[in-house]
Write a protein that binds this DNA or RNA. Structure first.
Lengths: 199, 199
DNA sequence: GTCTATAAAAGGATAGAC
DNA sequence: GTCTATCCTTTTATAGAC
């Protein structure tokens, strides 16, 4: 009960949570929410069934936490790019490069994108649907780049949201392929820029 | 037992099958395979639980049949376009236009694309994975257009398969959006052409 | 904090009545 | 051909031991 022990406990607690989340990330990404069994998560993380419920209230809460991280990370990344002193086309190019490289280099990035895909296509409770709106932060930031670029005439005309959605849709699709064919190489980011750039 | 009755029975049989498939299409597309309960399909089609099992061996068989239709239709469409006496860019443009219009006009088209998405991300038995290879017919046909166009210099350089995959990935993503936001308008097909066309 | 055993529920599939 | 009732497995979630 000394402070020392409490600190250690907090550390262990955090470690275990992360361990569970890390195992769950892979499984949820690969199978989706409904098809994932607690026993799948347990098998991947080498812990017991009961332990998962010691740290999380339900299967849904685990998924919720992972989705939150996915959404937060992607909107923050876009906001970072937005701060760079670059013309719109370059902001879009940076975004494409950064995301494709991250999917290529870190397996978890592809997993997180898959979590978002699953959240989009599943029948989700309101809490989860609420999180999905945050994703619109990323889409909307990108749509902002497009609007800006259309004003200066560097970019293709057309509905900015439609273009931004297509841009992310393509990335999500690529993440799906990456995961099913591990030897699949991410394409040149320029083809994503081509969605938006004037032909 | 007269021939007349057999014919009528065959008709009824076919009608029921289609009725079940039609109800299942919407539900599978909206919730995915694992999350779909037989009772969901039943509710959508206004028939009884047992009837479904009279016409199909299992939930999986229903999904399999729908996926087969999705795959067959898309590869056939691409082969049709390939027969047209058009330069590669135009074949790609036709494909983009045709598919986006079909998603826009027919709800079922979007549903069928969603079936494919779910099949891509689910943990599927070998039979279903086998069907997914057929999808590569469509992707590969498109990749063929790209290769052709690269030879003549009209199209962007880079891995044709990567571009074809991105093209379809974008469409699948758009179908997802279409279904969750029914008022979402499909973007200009040119943005899909932009993935492949020289910038 | 972690595990094992068990409860409780859900859902796929079948049998048999009509 | 169609429906209702039931079986039985699977799986989430909890209780309680260590």
């Amino acid at each position: 009960m000394s402070p020392r022990n409490e600190e250690q406990n907090a550390l262990i607690k955090d470690e275990r949570r992360e361990q569970i989340l890390s195992a769950a990330l892979k499984v949820f990404a690969s199978k989706g929410f409904a098809a994932t069994k607690i026993s799948d998560i347990v098998a991947g993380g080498g812990m017991s069934h009961g332990l998962v419920y010691h740290y999380f209230k339900s299967k849904e809460e685990i998924f919720y936490e992972l989705l939150k991280r996915a959404m937060t990370t992607s909107s923050e990344s876009l906001l970072m790019v937005d701060k760079l002193p670059l013309p719109p086309v370059e902001k879009i190019r940076q975004t494409a490069r950064y995301i494709l490289k991250s999917i290529e280099d870190y397996e978890d990035t592809a997993y997180y994108f898959l979590i978002v895909v699953h959240a989009s296509v599943m029948e989700a409770p309101d809490e989860i649907k609420g999180l999905m709106d945050i994703s619109n932060t990323a889409v909307q930031t990108l749509a902002g780049f497009v609007r800006e670029g259309q004003r200066t005439g560097e970019l293709r005309e057309g509905d900015p949201m439609g273009m931004a959605i297509t841009f992310f849709a393509a990335i999500e699709g690529l993440a799906i392929y990456k995961l099913s064919m591990s030897n699949f190489k991410m394409p040149d980011p320029e083809i994503l820029v081509g969605i938006i750039k004037k032909g």
